[in-house]
Write a protein that binds this DNA or RNA. Sequence first.
RNA 1: GGGCGGGUGGUGGAAUUGGUAGACACGCUAGACUCAAAAUCUUGUGAGCAUUCGCUCGUGAGGGUUCAAGUCCCUCCCCGCCCACCA
Length: 964
Amino acid sequence: MQRYNPKEIEPKWQKVWDETGLYTADLQSSRPKYIAMSMFNYPSGAGIHIGHAMNYTVSDVKARFKRQQGFESYHPVGWDAFGLPAENYAIKSGVSPQESMATIIPSYHKQYKAMGWSNDWEKEIATHLPEYYKWTQWIFVQMHKHGLAYQDSRMQWWCPIDNTVLANEQVIDGKCWRHDSPNDPPAEKREVKQWFFKITEYADELLEAIDDLDWTESVKLAQKNWIGKSMGAEVEFQVVDSESRVTVFTTRPDTIYGATFLVLAPEHELVPRITMTDQQAAIEAYIQKTQKKTEVERQAEKEKTGIFTGAYAINPASGQEIPIWIADYVLASYGTGAIMAVPAHDERDHEFAQAFELPIQQVVASYEIYGGATAPRENVETIQRNTIDAIILDKEGKVLLQAEGEHVHFVGGGVDPEDKNNEAAVRREVREETGYINIASIRQVAPVVAGVQYRHTKQKNQQAAGGFYEVVLENDEKVHSEADDGKHTLEWVDKDKVTSLLTWSWHQDGWRHYMEGGNSQTYFGEGVLTNSDMYNFMPTSEAREKIVADLAAKGLAIEKVNYRMNDWSVSRQRYWGAPIPIIHCLTCGPQLVPDDQLPVILPELKDFQPSGDGRSALARAKDWLEVDCPKCGGKAERETDTLDTYICSSWYFLRYLDPHNQQHAFNSHIANKWMPVDFYNGADHATAHMLYARFVTRFFTKIGLLESPEPFKEFLFNGKVTAHDGRMFSKSKGNGIDPLEIIDQGYGADALRTYLMFASPLELWTRWDAQGVPGTYRFLSRLWNLVQEFLESRTTNHEPQVQEEVLWAVHPVIKKVAEDIDGNRYNTAIAAMMGCVNDLYKLKEPGFGNREVWQQALEAMVAMVAPFAPHIAEELWFCLGHSTSVHRDSWPKYDEKYLASDTATVAVQVNGKLRGQVEVAADADEAAVTEAAKASENVHAHIEGKAIVKTIYVPGKILNLVVR
RNA sequence: GGGCGGGUGGUGGAAUUGGUAGACACGCUAGACUCAAAAUCUUGUGAGCAUUCGCUCGUGAGGGUUCAAGUCCCUCCCCGCCCACCA
């Protein structure tokens, strides 16, 4: 018998598939279409690594599965060839990126084929070829023509090593994404003229469509956070003694009465205008300091820094004059670059206020509707008042509680108009209720809490907002009080008794807050307003709208939606990218390169070093640079920026559908049939790339070239492969695993692929286990041997009933494997097939008597294993007598009659504990099963002498006898 | 700090969503084949007790609901990932 030898069969079939074009998709086919792909590959000299092996196998399995099911299945292949690494390599080695790609890409061909991926090589694309980037440039032109591309000067992240601008997402922890080791310098900020795509114009629709996507949930959430929509308002603050107004953005206009100061970002344009002369020097020094500060430093030091401008503004709600500060915790890039600080209700503002001893004013109170006897009543007048509650302590630390009927609470009461402040109210209330007059100290110890209740004494509902004050008595000297009149009683109690004695929950809360030493005036939740004039007791949600509306009527506010997402900066000051199709004319300004002159060919150079003035190496290509203006014919220069490679990858799936089209980026008719991509997967780029692809796709639908507004129907964010110790594989650690080496060791691509899909659920990270591939190799060998033994055996038996168990073993697995692959549960699909092979080993003991049954079973097994292990499957498929490939239209069908057995094994529990099993007919009723169970010896022992009080029967599964 | 995932044998992971916990695989154990080794095949493998039918415990910790909890509810602990001064 021939042994399983992947080294022999894998190259053999790879050659056959290649020559016959087995995986070439017919885009015009009348079959239902299916397109599965993994994220674009960036080719580098290192070749494919284990992460590639993982990613591309995931989509390959899906594509193969659908192809076997009869779909016209397309598994495309292409190269994201532009980008920094190839250029950096060129700078170092002098080998041009064009040349290195010309050798790297063919080496990838070999590796892809060795992995057995079912790519359609006829439709291969590469982004660095003029036939591709002509259309990348064309997209820029279309964006420009539709008003979505513009040039602007911006402070931009700048990598001091590459001398290039970085996108926000390319800055990680303050450093360039490619230079993030401890020794690398941080990214800087520089003013640079840039081209932008107005992705923010699509922010809302990109956000709204997320919910309906069949994507990994974490990625959907990441996209939402990335877009970062917040609803709020812009409010104007008049600067005192000045014409200027400061516009702030806030999501909490309801807290405006608590805005006790303003903060501007150091870069804010008003800073120089409103700075008082005596502060000027200090402020300039502060701005200098913050500009030098890197993101890393800003994040490391959490303490707030800032400086007072000397200027004041008027709070448009309260009319108070409040100081204007500058601080770097306010970002120039978000909102208006200025905030109203509400230290009582925002953690950052609170920190700042504490650091600089600025006033804190609580304006939102948590709110409670009291239950029980004091519940508010209907059709009763509601009055509103502020209250105080005093936690009175003597020198020993005992606490004074007041009892009134069934209620026990702290001493407290309303704040009367004659009380000039709350402290006066506390003093008055303590004297009136208790008679104590000598108070050592008073301090607010819990935030103001509001509530509504029914007051029997007044026969009205009362809304009250009150704070808790710690009152420490100096001595026990007292005067006549209400307590002496018998209105209520007073009692000194130990601190540990207080909680259990208090009858009002809000007093319990206040006490808890006090005992926890919680902050006395901050509250970050929702509630009702307090200290806010006519808005008092209004719920925060309502006040948000009302206050903005009232201020808007005076022209001082406007409702505003803000996004954290910024426009897409598409300029790169690099050589190795698609040139931006713009010509700068001194008289006419920037002009688009006319369509008939596309592509703007990237000239071949010898020196790829950026020109150092912030422009790319293209600035030195004089012949290329100098052109005539397409409008006036005068002297002009080409744009030297190239396009962000994210543009290349934002539409490549469309080019896959029409890779050789000379007239158009893609054919709309074909694209409308094939879009959206049915299955997409990857382990990176959850935000930027996916969002840009969605944006560009939506743009195409807007301009009428495409029907589907979303590019990816299903997206699986799969896990990565790490070393056995959980650390990332990396070249510097020298711990990489080379997939080709595994294959060459003799295990073959099939075993490797199967292991990667089996090791763990696709969405989890996999730790590389050196024993894993040998394990799946063993499984494939067993299948191989099973088929070979069957083919060599001579036994026959013509009775159809013989060995029908074989079908009972296989058909449920056919059902499960298809369901599991559809649901991306590849690991359990493989486990089910392994189990099935093990079952077949046992069933072959008496020989392969019923040849028809065995033929059917083995064909099904071979076909099911084919998406994971395509080579062995093809070999065995032909061995089993086929003359066409297993990889098309071979998926087995299961027969319902082999799914459910006519007998069932029922587990018998007594009082929920497993005590035995009984074999019964599948349709046996509860009584019959109970009878059978009672007859079972061990069950009998457990129920003997006891009464069965209840019986639960789950048909075919479990019988639970409850005894007493 | 915010958000999202998770904690199940020696290991990776199963468990039809409340119904026999540990499928499948790795590793380990014993045996067969072999002069021997590898490969292959056959055993056994959560812990403890009993080594005979069995019994007790067991899914991060503690409590609860239920005939029945890895799964549901409450309290707490730990780990991973992503985002992070976004007003």
